[in-house]
Nucleic acid binder design. Structure first.
Length: 456
RNA sequence: GACCCCGUCGUGUAGCCUGGUCUAGGACAAGAGCUUUUCAAGCUCUCGACACGGGUUCAAAUCCCGUCGGGGUCACCA
């Protein structure tokens, strides 16, 4: 049975590169009906932090990569010592005091020779072990070094395929020597190309966000990020780009992964995000958006009796300024209005802010472009039209508007843009008649009147 | 520096293994246009690559060698 593992070290957040490594491991396990094992490499007591463990676990869950087993290296120190002693007994390792006052370390004796590895992605790679110096197995503080713990763990956890970043290629001969000395079965290796930042070199904070959780916070959909990551170094064929994870599982094989390092391109991620956002179920999207609106203080959730309740519960949302109640369905409708226009979920609260607050800010440039001439007469006439409506629905609003411009003998757009700016503060947004409908007659009128009074 | 990996449009890739169908395909980005009620979306079009040099061959993006370029690793960090 295929058993793969993802082995992050909790000395930082789960970053893009780690996320991709986890993805390919998880995907391979799914493709082969194997097991995906998570191993927390927390041997460095100084730098490892519990908060990072939690952050990594949460990011993995968010991405949808659930693990079958989880291990912590910090709980396995006795196992490493046991294996090190075995090597000591067999004369493959020796003890040495490297620093004056420190305790003894256990060091592996490297024999000169050639080590060949057969990488699933890169085929044969040969190393000359004469170039590798003796390796510390157990540090003076009694904890194992990375390469040693890694070998002992992969062997004892019955890992069949080690799929990791290609920055580990040069660790591989060191590890293979250890497997051989210990008489353990060597797993198959697959070294994934690295993900580079836009300026070449490592993906760094300078070149953009690196943590998976940052992308969650910025309003990216997990599916979109996964799809994008998947296409960095792998292609499903037939020029397909958007691919469902279930389908990817059917088509994926590690040996098909590319050898070339890929550059992370935020623009393409944005495109994927927009694609997924467009097709996402509006109700689900609304559920993701609600907490963001609460955070911005645009809405509050409360119980039926009007008392406040946590964001996850409750049934009604209200606008805190006006105590105006709206229901979830209303919010879903707004989401539908903006869905295809969003690049990230977070965009919603910026683009749709005028639905949640009366205190709209009018963009100065928009004002200059569309509201520099006096349109109070036209605005008043439009208000009259709205008042005269039997039915206040999108079609009727549009119909009355078209009639008005015809009567005035002006072009639709000569009035559409000014009205949009006056009631939304923006030059961009959904169709005007939909905006008016969802804003409601009263609020639309109020905003137009406010503009007229202000001395348009 | 040594060792290792990699090298197709700006980016990500298809093609490479099994040379000819490649005047290199499609995607994102960029530019232009259509639509029009702005933006987004959608549709149409344009720009744009086999790193270079040698071989092998009737024929090379594809096979071989070299050069150059990029990246990675050289810890009692993982």
């Amino acid at each position: 049975m295929v058993r793969v593992r993802f082995a992050p070290s909790p000395t930082g957040n789960l970053h893009i590169g780690g996320g991709r490594t986890a993805l390919f491991n998880w995907l391979y396990a799914q493709a082969k009906s194997g097991k995906f094992i998570l191993r927390i490499e927390d041997t460095d007591q100084e730098r490892s932090k519990q908060e990072y463990v939690e952050e990594i676990l949460n990011s993995l869950k968010w991405l949808g990569f659930n693990w079958d087993e989880i291990y912590y290296q910090s709980k396995r120190f006795n196992i490493y010592t046991e294996y090190a002693n075995k090597l000591l007994k067999e004369g493959r390792a020796y003890k040495e005091k490297l620093a004056e006052r420190s305790s003894e370390t256990i060091i592996f004796k490297v024999n000169p020779g050639k080590i060949k590895i057969n990488d699933l992605i890169r085929q044969e790679i040969e190393f000359d072990t004469a170039l590798i110096k003796d390796q510390v197995l157990i540090k003076s503080d009694g904890t194992p070094t990375y390469n040693f713990a890694c070998v002992v763990d992969d062997a004892t956890m019955d890992i069949t395929h080690v799929i990791r970043g290609d920055d580990h290629i040069s660790n591989t001969p060191k590890q293979v020597m250890l497997y051989e000395a210990l008489g353990l079965a060597v797993p198959k290796f697959a070294h994934l190309p690295l993900i580079l930042g836009m300026e070449g070199g490592r993906l760094s904070k300078r070149t953009g966000a690196t943590a998976i959780s940052d992308y969650r916070k910025m309003g990216y959909l997990a599916q979109a990020l996964v799809n994008y990551l998947l296409l960095l170094s792998w292609a499903p064929g037939e020029n397909r780009e958007r691919i469902d994870i279930k389908e990817a599982i059917k088509l994926f094989d590690v040996s098909d992964v590319n050898k070339t390092a890929a550059t992370f391109d935020l623009k393409k991620l944005n495109w994927f995000n927009n694609q997924y956002l467009k097709n996402e179920d509006s109700e689900k999207l609304a559920d993701q958006i609600i907490p963001l609106l609460i955070e911005k203080n645009y809405i509050v959730k409360e119980n039926f009796d009007g008392s406040a309740c946590p964001p996850s519960a409750g049934s009604l949302t209200i606008n805190p300024e006006r105590s105006r109640r709206i229901d979830r369905q209303y919010l879903v409708s707004l989401v539908k209005l903006f869905q295809a226009r969003l690049s990230t979920i977070n965009d919603f609260s910026d683009w749709a802010d005028f639905f949640f607050t009366e205190d709209i800010t009018i963009d100065p440039k928009a004002k200059e472009k569309y509201l520099s001439s006096d349109l109070s007469r036209e605005f008043k006439l439009f208000i009259n039209k709205l008042d005269g409506l039997d039915k206040f629905d999108i079609d009727s609003i549009e119909e009355s508007f078209r009639k008005l411009v015809e009567e005035l003998g002006i072009e639709s757009k000569a009035l559409i843009h000014p009205i949009r700016v006056a009631i939304t503060g923006k030059t961009i947004g959904p169709g005007l008649f939909e905006v008016i409908y969802y804003l409601g007659k009263d609020r639309t009128k109020a905003r137009l009147l406010k503009w007229i009074e202000r001395g348009g």
